[in-house]
Simulated assay, not measured.
Amino acid sequence: MLDAAVFREIALSNPHNRRLLEGLAELALPQCHLTAGCLFQTLWNVLSGRPPHENIKDYDVFYFDGGDLSWEAEDALIRRVTPLAERLGLPVEVKNQARVHLWYRQRFGADYPQLHSVRDGISRYLVRCTCVGIDVATGGVFAPDGFADLAAGILRINPVIPQPGKWQTKAESYRARWPWLRIVEEGDQFA
């Protein structure tokens, strides 16, 4: 059965995740988490018998700094992570979760609430089972919806951010890379 310890072990079987976590720890970004596809897609790769790092488009780093919501402050932290990303040869995206509400509507066409922590941001991924992160400082795994759907490859809409069109597109893109995944519509009781 998949639990936090097993998930972390599998996520770190991707050497890119392991090296990125090590490098991020040295930078000490506030509330820093490695999150999103680089973690759950590593699991799906392992379950599919593929190399752990295959088909991972980017590596997401979330941090939370509510003290300065300017783009300049976020850009300064992005520039601190850039040499690490370049040294590892990884496409890394860094986002201050304290300021997502400032740009989300312009980029995605929908409102977004002001968040109060990195975990608030991780909890808002479109596909429910993909809400996972590893705390860089503690190594702890955050998975508000647990691991059952993630391990079973069940893709459900996240009721915290109900955007059916965007969810469907995201779920289909995952299933195109991992065909064994199952998309479960709201109200479907099979899983």
Rank of each mutant, 00 (worst) to 15 (best):
104 Y>V: 14
104 Y>L: 14
104 Y>P: 05
105 R>M: 12
106 Q>N: 09
107 R>D: 15
107 R>H: 14
108 F>P: 10
109 G>K: 02
111 D>K: 00
112 Y>E: 03
113 P>E: 05
114 Q>K: 13
114 Q>P: 04
115 L>S: 00
115 L>D: 00
117 S>V: 03
117 S>D: 08
117 S>I: 05
117 S>Q: 05
119 R>K: 13
121 G>I: 01
121 G>K: 06
122 I>M: 08
122 I>E: 04
123 S>E: 10
123 S>D: 12
123 S>V: 06
124 R>A: 01
125 Y>K: 04
127 V>S: 04
127 V>R: 03
127 V>M: 00
127 V>C: 02
127 V>G: 05
128 R>S: 13
130 T>K: 02
130 T>E: 01
130 T>H: 09
131 C>L: 06
131 C>W: 10
132 V>T: 14
132 V>L: 09
133 G>A: 14
134 I>D: 03
135 D>W: 09
138 T>I: 01
138 T>E: 09
138 T>A: 07
139 G>F: 10
140 G>S: 13
140 G>Y: 03
140 G>E: 15
140 G>R: 12
140 G>L: 13
140 G>V: 11
140 G>T: 08
141 V>E: 10
141 V>H: 07
141 V>T: 02
142 F>S: 06
143 A>W: 02
145 D>K: 07
145 D>P: 00
146 G>R: 13
146 G>S: 14
147 F>G: 04
148 A>E: 13
148 A>Q: 12
148 A>G: 10
149 D>L: 06
149 D>R: 07
150 L>W: 10
151 A>L: 13
151 A>Y: 12
151 A>R: 14
152 A>S: 11
152 A>L: 13
152 A>F: 09
154 I>A: 12
156 R>G: 07
158 N>L: 11
159 P>G: 08
159 P>H: 01
159 P>C: 04
159 P>A: 02
160 V>M: 09
161 I>L: 15
161 I>W: 10
161 I>K: 00
161 I>R: 11
162 P>V: 10
163 Q>E: 12
163 Q>L: 14
164 P>L: 06
165 G>H: 01
165 G>W: 00
165 G>S: 10
167 W>D: 01
168 Q>D: 12
169 T>S: 12
169 T>K: 08
170 K>T: 07
171 A>N: 06
171 A>H: 02
172 E>R: 14
172 E>Y: 11
172 E>D: 13
173 S>L: 04
173 S>A: 12
173 S>F: 04
173 S>G: 03
174 Y>E: 06
174 Y>V: 04
175 R>D: 03
175 R>V: 01
175 R>C: 00
176 A>S: 15
176 A>T: 14
177 R>N: 12
177 R>E: 15
177 R>I: 15
178 W>V: 02
178 W>Y: 15
178 W>D: 03
179 P>F: 08
179 P>A: 14
180 W>N: 02
180 W>T: 09
181 L>P: 05
181 L>H: 07
182 R>W: 01
183 I>G: 05
183 I>Q: 05
